[in-house]
Amino acid sequence: MTDRVIAFFVFIAAVPLIDFPAYKRMPFKGAAIYVVLMISALYLGYIFITGAALPNITDLISFIYGGPAEALMRMFKPNE
């Protein structure tokens, strides 16, 4: 777990540090999306470190498209 914690903090610290010079000229919309993306990264980082079974993008995609996709898969099954 220690290796994951170190790796995650390196990743999460590197991005804002590298982008620091760009902050001043970033428009509001860009800054807002930037913050949203960083918060998403923190959430995913928590899952990465703890291995918690929290909702992820695959759960969202399965929730939206899972039903019709599975129905289609059943249609493709060969007749026994």
Partner: peptide, 26 residues
Amino acid sequence: LGLKDENTLVYPISLVSLMLSLTMFR
């Protein structure tokens, strides 16, 4: 978003995608 600087979001998008690649498939 109509951003003038096309590189603004490359690093945060990469970071989110990296974290997704490590967590999305159990």
